[in-house]
Simulated scan of single mutants.
Amino acid sequence: MQPIRFELDPGHDHVELNQLLKLTGLCGSGGAGKALVASGAVRVDGQVELRKTCKIRAGQTVQFEGVTIEVIAV
């Protein structure tokens, strides 16, 4: 499966992990994103991430259920 490329909004240097899952359509809400992160199902740069509002910055990758999200700056 092709990775999803997520562009950070201009003027922002990060996006919260739970919001990233919502904004890329991998879950329906920020609350659902928090639950997914808390379950241990989400990896950031290859490591399990349990901090629901972890700041994801350009250059990082997030994996969930076989989908990879590449975060890039515009």
Rank of each mutant, 00 (worst) to 15 (best):
I72L: 15
D45A: 10
L36M: 08
E7I: 02
Q60L: 10
F6L: 07
K52A: 13
V71Y: 04
Q60W: 09
G66T: 00
T53Y: 04
K34E: 04
T53E: 11
G33T: 01
R43K: 14
L8D: 05
T61V: 08
C54V: 01
G46W: 04
E49K: 12
E65G: 09
V44T: 03
T61N: 06
Q63V: 04
H12A: 14
M1C: 06
F6T: 05
H14G: 10
V42S: 06
L26P: 06
E7A: 12
V67A: 05
G46Q: 07
D13P: 04
D9C: 13
L36I: 11
V74A: 14
Q19L: 15
A73T: 11
I4F: 01
Q2F: 01
Q63T: 12
V74D: 01
G25H: 10
V37R: 02
S29V: 06
T53G: 14
V62Y: 04
L20R: 13
L26S: 12
T53A: 11
V37Q: 03
I69M: 07
A35S: 07
I72Q: 13
V44W: 00
A73K: 14
T61C: 09
F6M: 12
A41D: 06
A41S: 14
G66Q: 06
G11W: 09
V62M: 15
K34G: 08
E65N: 13
G28H: 13
E16W: 11
E70P: 00
S39V: 02
L20V: 08
P3S: 10
A38E: 01
E16Y: 13
V67Q: 07
G31E: 07
V62I: 15
L36R: 02
G11L: 13
F64A: 05
E70C: 09
I72N: 07
L26Q: 07
L8R: 15
E49T: 07
K34Q: 10
F6Y: 15
N18Y: 12
G33W: 01
L23W: 10
V62P: 00
S29I: 08
R51W: 01
G40Q: 04
F64P: 01
I72R: 14
L21Q: 12
S39H: 06
D45K: 12
K55E: 09
V67I: 12
I69R: 04
L20A: 14
A73W: 03
C54L: 11
K52Q: 12
V71A: 12
G40P: 00
I69K: 06
L8T: 05
G28C: 05
K52E: 09
C27M: 08
N18R: 14
E16G: 14
G40A: 08
G31H: 14
V15H: 08
E16R: 15
K55P: 11
L23M: 11
K22F: 15
Q60G: 04
V71W: 11
G33S: 09
G33M: 01
A32E: 13
V62F: 09
T53C: 05
A73P: 07
G46E: 00
K34P: 00
V67T: 10
R51L: 10
G59N: 11
S39N: 08
G66I: 00
L17R: 03
G30A: 10
L36D: 00
